[in-house]
Design a protein around this nucleic acid. Structure first.
Length: 207
DNA sequence: CGGCTGATGATCT
DNA sequence: GATCATCAGCCGG
């Protein structure tokens, strides 16, 4: 049979709103190493979060900067709301609302280390190697089967998309500028696990 | 690996 | 009609 360490770890305990900092930048950092899981009919798929970006209130790069609109309204609702939108007509991106009601801010989930349901995630991604399975916000959503259906949901409301404890503590956390933006582009608001091969972006940003 | 480009569609003015 | 919090594919080094 297989060796003693084969197979995914058991699913972690669900995190609640009280388990995480209610401040955008601190939240982005605290999420590194935690688990992001989607319960699907055929079983859970999930990753260990290795990269996030903070979009604080008043940040010109953030979707909330222009004020509340139909699309970005989840960012203005309670801490822990799910904000999913379509980027470039091709990719879904998932965020968590990171401040209290009325304040528009969020954290973007950018990359994950595949942990649960790896076979299912690879099928959803079509081709590609494990290293490319969730190494970017669009790839992450495709692997996890996250899309518009989840927009407006609640990470802490007992739903199918949820956050869990870390199955392994994060290593050293690096900080860099954010990827793919032009406004407020020099702010150090991207967080990533330095030792992880599963992060996105140019290597220069993840030394 | 870094750099470039086309595809693609919802959103907002 | 412009603007993207992207990706895959292709090219050169």
């Amino acid at each position: 049979m297989d060796g003693p360490s084969s197979g995914p770890p058991p699913l972690p305990r669900r995190l609640g709103a009280a388990d995480l900092p209610h401040e955008t930048v601190a939240l982005a950092r605290a999420l590194i190493g935690k688990s992001l899981i989607h319960d699907l009919p055929d079983g859970p798929v999930g990753v260990r979060i290795v990269e996030t970006e903070a979009y604080p209130a008043g940040d010109a790069a953030g979707h909330a900067f222009i004020g509340q609109t139909r699309r970005n309204s989840p960012l203005f609702h309670d801490f822990g709301r799910v904000y999913v939108y379509l980027g470039y007509g091709t990719s879904w991106l998932i965020n968590i609302a990171s401040e209290s009601h009325g304040i528009g801010a969020g954290v973007l989930f950018r990359a994950g280390e595949p942990v649960w349901g790896i076979e299912a995630m690879m099928r959803r991604r079509g081709k590609g190697r494990l290293i490319d399975l969730a190494s970017g916000p669009g790839k992450l959503c495709q692997a996890l089967d996250v899309d518009k259906r989840h927009d407006g949901g609640d990470f802490f409301g007992g739903g199918h998309v949820w956050l869990g404890e870390a199955v392994r503590p994060p290593g050293e956390i690096g900080v860099s500028i954010r990827i793919g933006i032009t406004k407020d582009a020099d702010r150090p608001l991207r967080f990533y696990e330095r030792a992880s091969p599963f992060v996105s972006g140019p290597k220069k940003l993840s030394p």
